[in-house]
């Protein structure tokens, strides 16, 4: 059968447009995993300790550097380097809590300034370890691309990343909702004093919060390592995204941060695809400002009583 040419053209174009739309959903979903891993740590640390951790993007960067150093430079198996990256970043987080945030407990601004100091220190350390020069690259341990319906393409490396991100977020959710320590953590973030009246040692909980938050950041960095340019300044974009997601989701709300991560990743991906990345970032920041004006508690936050 011979189709009229205008029909063939528009049919072909419709298929192309549909392909692009579905591929964008795939692209956005994969992005959302990183956004969420980075943002939940920021939310946890802010919630429990009242400190905005400006060095959070650098924790992600250290995770990525660990994988680059051990896997790309010294051929350690990728999965082992993920575990080591999580451990390294967790230890950094614990040291930050013990030596900076705890002495600054009653001074959130002091804590913030300390975290900016850590940001610079970690950037310099990364330069010392990795040297200067071009961004580092990690060859992807999982090669190849899964092709669905002959047009949707998901590289196995990204499939692995999203699976691990979802699993880690699921574990975190289980920890927070089904374990006593998780309840204690949420209790401290809601009312530190009332929590101490239940016998909850808030120093210990702060340490657990930053350890969990840092571990998530380390994991995000480790998973991103094979997919992005690794350099000492890569944390910058991470923290901006994490701030947007945290504010849109509702400061202090973990579920809000995860939901906002998914929404923002899809939004950013679609705007980047159909307009461009600069428009996407600017409109993302505008949405953040809008949320601050219209609904300062974010999509999942509650108004603070008292």
């Amino acid at each position: 059968m011979i189709l009229p040419s205008f029909f063939a053209d528009s049919f072909y174009e419709t298929i192309l447009a549909l392909e692009l739309f579905l591929q964008s959903i795939v692209n956005g979903t994969i992005q959302s995993g990183f956004f969420a891993l980075a943002a939940v740590g920021l939310v946890l640390i802010f919630g429990v300790m009242g400190v905005v951790n400006f060095a959070h993007g650098e924790l992600v960067m250290v995770g990525a550097y660990t994988v680059w150093f051990l896997h790309a430079q010294h051929s350690t198996p990728f999965l082992i380097t993920i575990v080591i990256a999580i451990l390294v970043v967790t230890v950094i987080g614990i040291l930050m809590e013990k030596f900076l945030f705890r002495p600054m407990r009653d001074d959130p601004l002091g804590g913030l300034i300390c975290s900016i100091g850590v940001l610079f220190i970690l950037q310099v350390l990364a330069t010392l370890v990795g040297g200067d020069g071009p961004s580092k690259q990690v060859p992807p341990p999982f090669e190849g691309t899964m092709v669905l319906f002959e047009f949707l393409r998901i590289p196995y490396q990204r499939l692995f990343s999203i699976a691990v991100s979802v699993a880690a977020l699921g574990l975190l959710w289980h920890f927070l909702t089904h374990t006593k320590l998780g309840w204690a953590l949420r209790a401290v973030s809601q009312d530190r004093e009332a929590a101490s009246l239940q016998g909850i040692n808030s120093n210990r909980i702060s340490m657990i919060a930053i350890a969990v938050g840092a571990a998530m950041a380390g994991l995000a960095g480790a998973l991103m390592a094979p997919l992005t340019n690794i350099n000492p300044h890569m944390g910058h974009n991470v923290i901006i995204t994490a701030f947007i997601v945290t504010i849109v989701g509702g400061v202090g709300s973990l579920s809000g941060a995860v939901i906002a991560s998914v929404l923002y990743a899809l939004f950013h991906t679609f705007v980047t695809t159909y307009f461009n990345g600069t428009v996407a970032t600017i409109s993302g920041l505008l949405i953040m400002v809008l949320v601050l004006i219209v609904r300062p508690t974010g999509i999942m936050g509650h108004r603070v009583s008292e």
Binding site: W183, A187, Q190, E193, E306
Partner: peptide
């Protein structure tokens, strides 16, 4: 100590609040 203003954990369930009372 039952503090002034109740100070319950509002974003936790009733049961979770009670379990936290037994934290020790």
């Amino acid at each position: 100590h039952v503090p002034e203003g109740r100070r319950i954990f509002k974003d936790l369930s009733v049961a979770e609040n009670l379990y936290l009372g037994a934290y020790i």
